[in-house]
Deep mutational scan, measured.
Amino acid sequence: MGFKLLSKLLVYLTASIMAIASPLAFSVDSSGEYPTVSEIPVGEVRLYQIADGVWSHIATQSFDGAVYPSNGLIVRDGDELLLIDTAWGAKNTAALLAEIEKQIGLPVTRAVSTHFHDDRVGGVDVLRAAGVATYASPSTRRLAEVEGNEIPTHSLEGLSSSGDAVRFGPVELFYPGAAHSTDNLIVYVPSASVLYGGCAIYELSRTSAGNVADADLAEWPTSIERIQQHYPEAQFVIPGHGLPGGLDLLKHTTNVVKAHTNRSVVE
């Protein structure tokens, strides 16, 4: 069995187990497998329904001669939608809004960016022009300005110390501490036991640490421990890039980060 097929099978099995364990909360999309990078042309966006009122959005972007996937989250909030992270750029984010209108038909009224990198804030200006209120932590807003990236308009308070959590509509926002970046936030959907790890969490097929220019490698494993301790009931975990899975993604990420750190020390 090929690795790609095995990865998709694991996603399907995880979703099936969740649907059985929580039949009222989960209505997993039966329309197909989780979209992969090879299936999404740059400039297009796919939506994948995880649970009743919960979707991931998947886009792709060219970077350094390669094409990478990027995940975000959409959560229903009454007759409105909360968006977590842009679709990595203005063109993708405009396509995301169009796809949401086509498939869901509810307005996106608020959006949260989970850290300051372009795959999370690139497209904020498109959201703002569409009347979406954009939010991020003060740290993310400051770092985005320093980096020359787009800056969300509103500040999220109460997320300055490791372990801080605040309720934001249908989700809980959690600051686990520094990891992929010093400002990275985690998003949890309690009604569906869905954990969105953003770039602080890796997919299972990833074996290298990737972009760690703004990471705190020493603190990252401790931050992941905080996530595990705060959300032990999480059933569906979405990484910032690639295929979702279960809580095993947290341990896998820790292993990859520690291996990278150990290699760096040896070198």
Rank of each mutant, 00 (worst) to 15 (best):
V121G: 01
T60C: 04
D118L: 06
Y196M: 06
N92W: 00
E225A: 12
A133F: 11
S113T: 05
I20N: 14
L127H: 04
L97R: 00
A111N: 06
I227N: 05
W220S: 00
L204A: 14
S161E: 14
E150G: 04
S22Q: 11
V265S: 12
L143G: 05
V112Q: 04
Y135I: 01
E44R: 12
V237N: 01
A19F: 15
E172V: 06
P107V: 13
V237Y: 04
S22N: 09
I17E: 08
R206T: 15
L83H: 00
L247M: 14
H57E: 00
I74C: 02
V166L: 12
L13T: 13
V124E: 03
T153I: 14
A21P: 06
L173P: 07
E219M: 09
V112F: 06
S27F: 08
R110L: 10
N262L: 10
I227C: 02
K8I: 08
V189S: 03
T261S: 11
A178N: 09
F236T: 09
E147C: 06
V166T: 11
A133W: 09
I151H: 05
F168Y: 07
R128H: 11
V112L: 09
S162L: 10
D119L: 00
P244I: 12
G53L: 07
D118Y: 05
D216T: 10
P221E: 09
G177Y: 02
S208W: 08
Q61R: 15
V166P: 03
S56E: 15
N262M: 14
L97S: 03
S155R: 12
V126W: 08
S162A: 14
T114E: 00
L81P: 03
A94N: 13
K258R: 12
G197R: 02
D248N: 09
L195G: 00
V11H: 14
Y135V: 01
L10P: 13
A111C: 07
D214M: 05
E219Q: 11
D79F: 09
V124T: 08
S22H: 08
I104C: 00
A51D: 09
Y12L: 08
H154G: 10
G65S: 10
E101V: 10
A59Y: 06
V67L: 15
A94Q: 14
V257A: 03
S155W: 07
K258F: 11
E33H: 07
I100F: 05
E101M: 09
L6Y: 10
A133M: 14
N149L: 13
V237T: 04
I186V: 12
L13G: 05
F63S: 10
A59D: 06
I50Q: 05
G148K: 12
